[in-house]
């Protein structure tokens, strides 16, 4: 199924959803996420695989990107959620897809997005006591080697 056809199907069910300009992505309001995802998985589209979760730091906002894949129908969907950069928090998808567990931990680790009701909200790639979120655009490299005092 082509992305536009998938979008039409989603639009019929969830009118608040809109297509992002310039890409094939579908943008969904934060509040509808869980409901939409349950429908995506159990509905006719059959997105049984949460393939990838990531984020893009757009400075004023953070785009949370979910990529879904349907094993039976072999189509792919990019779902975006615009989050406020100051306090990015969103419902976790871990109850629906188990793969979301580690993907969301990684996204939290690198972008600082808080996933509500996540079963294991720890960092994953960086050390557990790491400060700050490395893939944010305003991330300042920690000064590992202090400058010699003259």
């Amino acid at each position: 199924m082509r992305p536009s056809e998938i979008f039409d199907l989603i639009k019929a069910e969830f009118p608040e959803v809109r297509a992002e300009e310039g890409t094939d992505a579908v943008v969904c309001p934060k509040e509808d996420l869980l409901k939409l995802c349950r429908w995506l998985k159990n509905g006719s589209l059959g997105f049984d695989d949460l393939h990838c979760v990531t984020a893009i730091d757009r400075k004023e906002r953070i785009d949370l990107v979910h990529i879904f894949y349907s094993t039976s129908q072999k189509h792919i969907l990019t779902l975006k959620i615009y989050l406020d950069a100051k306090d990015p928090s969103v419902e976790s998808l871990a109850p629906i897809w188990r793969s979301a567990d580690w993907f969301e931990r990684e996204t939290y680790d690198l972008f600082g997005i808080t996933f509500l009701h996540h079963p294991d909200p720890r960092r994953i790639l960086n050390p557990y006591d790491w400060k700050d979120y490395p893939l944010r655009k305003d991330y300042a490299n920690p000064n590992f080697i202090p400058k010699p005092r003259l």
Binding site: H51, C52, T54, I56, D57, V65, I67, R98, S99, D101, W102, F103, E106, L135
Partner: peptide, 16 residues
């Protein structure tokens, strides 16, 4: 690139 995400297969393979 403005943002580059690598979706490594081993990552989810290990999660199980």
């Amino acid at each position: 690139p403005y943002r580059l995400k690598i979706r490594g297969p081993s990552f989810s393979n290990l999660a199980v």
